[in-house]
Structures are given as structure tokens and as C-alpha cells.
Write a protein that binds this DNA or RNA. Structure first.
Lengths: 209, 209
DNA sequence: TAGATTGTTAATCGATTAACAATC
DNA sequence: TAGATTGTTAATCGATTAACAATC
């Protein structure tokens, strides 16, 4: 069904999902590539190409069923299963992620945090346990996460990733400001906040030319 | 000096900066496109093309001066000035950003937060004031931020952006999970955390095929 | 000078846009 | 049937890679 999907398309999938969900909430049941394109800031052509990466979902002369298309993308992204997340680093960012209700609603459940700071340990954030980092390996077997979130200082990121790989973890959501090295059968997605802020700065700087 | 710079290059600038800074810290003073490429996962060709977007920084037979190149990119990104940030929404994400020391070090200083929740108001996070959202417009003149951070529910994001535009703000760092509409002379950079997590999910799902 | 490596032009590759026949 | 809009092929555009003469 779905062969090779380019990175460009993959990066747009969440936006498709977001817009289709909104449309559905607004009671829209059907939409053309023209309308969806206007809404998302893409050409109708690109919308059709993107959607056809996964197979025929439209009907000529009519458009796309909002609900069906949304559900399909939902499934493609693997959002029909639950994910268990462990957050390593219980600083402000780690805790913000742990407690953001939006993730849980989408099936991403934080099951525990880890930290090296003895002050933070035990001090559960809204019923979530914070364990000492040294118990990480030991507890992973029980916790059974499929995703680990790196919300720790950059110096500790690579060694932690290596350890997690040994422990069988294959999905990493990295907030540390480093480019990590990892085996081909591991997936790492970065959230480089400083990079994002620097891009904003660049664009503000080169605005008025 | 620098004419049109493609988005692809702009998105790589922070990574260049990051790697050059690391190299400098490690005492490396000179580097070839070959070596830098290996380190960053880019081809030497691409490194040279990217750097030459801004003008000749290398020396044939030798390579690039790490310090000079780093400084130049620093300047290009506008990191040689200070930025004043106001954060709208003093929830966990807003507060995490407000207190992340890494931004201040780079010249991005949070000067205040705003929130609609009376419980949060006044309750300063490490010496930062939290003002009621209704005073936003009133206080912006004094606060003089150039960047506003949207860390509020998606329902309030668009109307807040519109108001900020009216108040003369031209830089928005948006954490709300929506695609905002904005005038051409405004710069908006998104951090769509859910999108990022969904991409991770997609890639884990399509890993073993 | 000889060797190395840039700056830059040309070739390739991939992604986006345009066009249009197929069909609901 | 006529009109609309898809699915898909072809054209275009832009970004990446390769090649090599210039030069440190």
C-alpha cells in the first residue's frame, strides 16, 4: 500500500491530521484539494500528490471524505496504538512534557521520570514517580516504555541514548541541544528549541531587505 | 553581501553554529569542509555551497577558521544583539521557557509573563513578574519586547497574535498547536510539539519494513 | 613547487507545480 | 448528461552532489 514516503510528506502529515480534525469538529464532511490547499497554504496539486502517496482516497467530481481521510492518516502515523513514555531529566522541560494533557489524549502516556538530583526524586509530579537516574536500566523492564524523552543536559545525552539502545529502546524524543549518533534501527526526533529561536532571530533580522 | 538565502540553508545555520562552537571549545582552530561534513552528516560539497551563500570564508588548501566562521554565523543570525521576550501563557511550558538559562546566555531575555489565571498572577517565577492577560496591551509599551512567545491554548492564539501585531510586535515564537495567519512583515516560527511526537510515532511505525 | 582544499560551474536528483484524461 | 474534481503523467523548479580550475 504505502511504499517509499518522502521526508517532505512525512513532515506534513501532522498538519493534515490537525486540519482534518478541525474540519471534522466544524461539521465539514467533505472537502476538495482546492479548499484544503487554501486552508493549509499548499497547492491543490500538492495535496493530491501527498494523499495519493497512500492510495486513492478521493472521488472524482466530489473531493475527499474528511472523516475517512483523517482516520487513515491517524492510522498511518501509528496513533491508533498507545505509547508509553519515560522522561529522563525531571527539570522544567521534562515536567512540562510529563504533565501536558494534550499528549495523553493522543495516546502518549508518560509513565515515569528519572533524575540525578536527589531533591527531585520521589517528589512526584501529579502522581508520576521520579526515580533516581541510576535505577534507569533496572526499571525499564517493568516500565516497558517504547519512547524515551531526553530532557537532560547535552553532556549526558549521548551516553544515555547508548544505554537506552542497549535496553532495547528504539524511539527517542530528544530535547538536548546536540546531534546524536544512533544505530539505523533507532528513531530519533529532535526538538532543538534554541535552533528554533535562532531561526526566528535570523528571519527578524533579514525581514526588511 | 548576502542576497537570497534559501530556507534549507537557514534551517541549517543553527547546527553550523552549534558545531563550530563545540569545535572551538575543543580547541580546534581550523577545519575542512570534508571534516565538518563528516561531523554534521552533510557532504563537503553542501558545506561549501552553504558557506558560500554568505561570501568567501575559506582558504584554498587549508579550510575554514573555526572562530571566524562561527562569529560570522553568529552575526548573520542576529545573535549579536539582545532580544527581549514576553511569554503569554504562564503554564508549564511558558514557565519552562522563561526559566531556561540557555536562552538568556544567548541574549534572549524573558522580561515578563502574562496569564488569565488569577492564581498564577503575581506569583513570580524566579523574580519574573506574571501579569494579568488583560494588561497585555497596556504593558507592552514599557516592556519593549521584540519577541512574544505564545504558550497558551490554541483557541486564544490567533486573536492574541492579531493584538500583538497591532501593538507593533513583529516576532512570534508559537507553541500553540495551530497554523496562524499573519501579515507579511511579521515573522512566526512554530514549535509544534505534538507534530514532532507524531512524526516520531510514524517513523517508529514504518521502521521495520 | 607540490599538495590540499576552496569557490564555482555543471550535472543530477527530488520535490513541487501544471496539465489533462479519467470518472464520479 | 454536464460539471466538477480526482489520479496521474509531464514540466518545472530548486536543492544537492559532482567535478574541476583557481589558488593558498
Amino acid at each position: 500500500m504505502s511504499g517509499y514516503v518522502s521526508d517532505a510528506v512525512i513532515r506534513r502529515l501532522p498538519a493534515y491530521y490537525r486540519h482534518l480534525r478541525e474540519l471534522e469538529n466544524d461539521g465539514v464532511t467533505q472537502i476538495s484539494s482546492q479548499e484544503l490547499g487554501e486552508r493549509m497554504g499548499l497547492t491543490p496539486s500538492q495535496i493530491r500528490q501527498d494523499i495519493n502517496t497512500f492510495g486513492g482516497f478521493g472521488r472524482q467530481g466530489y473531493g475527499y471524505q474528511v472523516h475517512d481521510l483523517k482516520e487513515h492518516i491517524h492510522k498511518i502515523m501509528g496513533l491508533d496504538r498507545d505509547h508509553r513514555m519515560v522522561i529522563i531529566g525531571a527539570g522544567r522541560i521534562g515536567q512540562a512534557i510529563a504533565n501536558y494533557a494534550g499528549f495523553a489524549v493522543q495516546g502518549f502516556h508518560t509513565v515515569a521520570l528519572f533524575d540525578i538530583d536527589p531533591v527531585k526524586i520521589g517528589q512526584s509530579t501529579e502522581a508520576l514517580p521520579i526515580y533516581p537516574a541510576e535505577e534507569l536500566l533496572l526499571r525499564l523492564a517493568d516500565l516497558q516504555p517504547d519512547i524515551c524523552v531526553l530532557a537532560l543536559p547535552k553532556e549526558a545525552a549521548q551516553q544515555t541514548l547508548d544505554l537506552l539502545y542497549q535496553a532495547g529502546i528504539r524511539g527517542i524524543w530528544n530535547f538536548a541541544p546536540v546531534d546524536l549518533h544512533f544505530p539505523r534501527d533507532m528513531v530519533v526526533v529532535n526538538v532543538h528549541l534554541s535552533d528554533s529561536l535562532q531561526i526566528l532571530s535570523y528571519q527578524m533580522n533579514h525581514q526588511k531587505e
